[in-house]
Simulated scan of single mutants.
Amino acid sequence: MQEAGAIRAAALDAVDDVDPQVIYDRIDELLDRESMAPGVFTVACANAIRERSGRATDDLEADDALAERAAGVQLIYVGLSRTRTLAADQPWTTGDGEAGNLDILVADILVARGFYLLARTEASDEAVAVVRAFGRDQTVARETGESLDANLERDVFELAAVAGVTAAGVSPTPQLRELATDLGGSDASLPRTLHEQLTAVVNVDSGGTDGVRTSVDH
């Protein structure tokens, strides 16, 4: 998919100053391995608004602002996903502590750079809320044994919806948020009917901050 390639390139561009090379190479590997669906969903949400309002959906490679938002969502997802994996399958218990230490550092870098890309956007508070919710879920899972892993995808897809539609100048509708969490709960995959589903739940007249949660709402 063309959008996935452009998002991956933007994500790598955001970490191109990371040293030493072994850290950058590990980031490259993780971006290849993880699903690009959150970043692609970000772009799809923005494009749905643009189409509904009669605006052109430009080539993502030429739309730096949207590509950066999508990359920010993707970096946060990959970083938290890797953290979740490390918490579940701790490499330190199997004699692979060096790899585990590297991945902890990589995960921190990914989340931090994702925050940086979203810091001055309307999705910044939503990004903070995603990370806070992830931390709470991990604590509850550790203390109770309850699996809350699926919440990450739901939360990240909702972040993607906010980042996408606000890039096009509107706020997410409750129906869009519901669609985002539904998609995140279904193996975080994007259906072939995504365009039609988005068209049915976006609102080009929704402006301001209505529907955009801040950190105090969580």
Rank of each mutant, 00 (worst) to 15 (best):
M1D: 07
Q2A: 14
E3V: 13
R8E: 13
A9R: 01
A11M: 09
D13R: 11
A14W: 03
L30I: 08
L30F: 05
L30C: 09
R33C: 05
A37L: 00
G39L: 02
T42M: 11
T42C: 15
V43I: 03
C45N: 04
A46I: 01
I49E: 01
R50K: 14
S53N: 06
T57R: 15
D63G: 12
D64M: 12
D64I: 10
A67K: 01
A67Y: 01
A67L: 01
R69M: 06
A70N: 05
A71G: 10
G72S: 14
Q74I: 00
I76S: 12
V78A: 04
G79E: 06
T83C: 02
A87K: 11
P91I: 13
W92P: 01
T94L: 06
G97R: 02
E98T: 13
N101K: 05
N101R: 05
D103Q: 07
I104R: 14
I109T: 14
R120A: 05
T121F: 05
A123I: 08
A123R: 03
D125M: 08
R132Q: 15
A133G: 11
G135W: 00
D137I: 02
E146Y: 07
A150P: 06
L152R: 00
L152K: 02
D155N: 15
D155T: 12
F157N: 00
E158Y: 12
A160R: 10
V162D: 13
A163D: 12
V165D: 14
A168H: 11
G169C: 11
V170N: 12
V170H: 09
S171E: 06
P172Q: 07
T173W: 07
E178I: 00
G184V: 01
S186H: 14
S189I: 04
L190W: 03
H195A: 06
E196D: 05
Q197Y: 00
Q197L: 03
L198A: 03
T199A: 14
V201T: 09
G207E: 08
T209V: 13
T209N: 12
D210I: 06
T214P: 09
S215E: 12
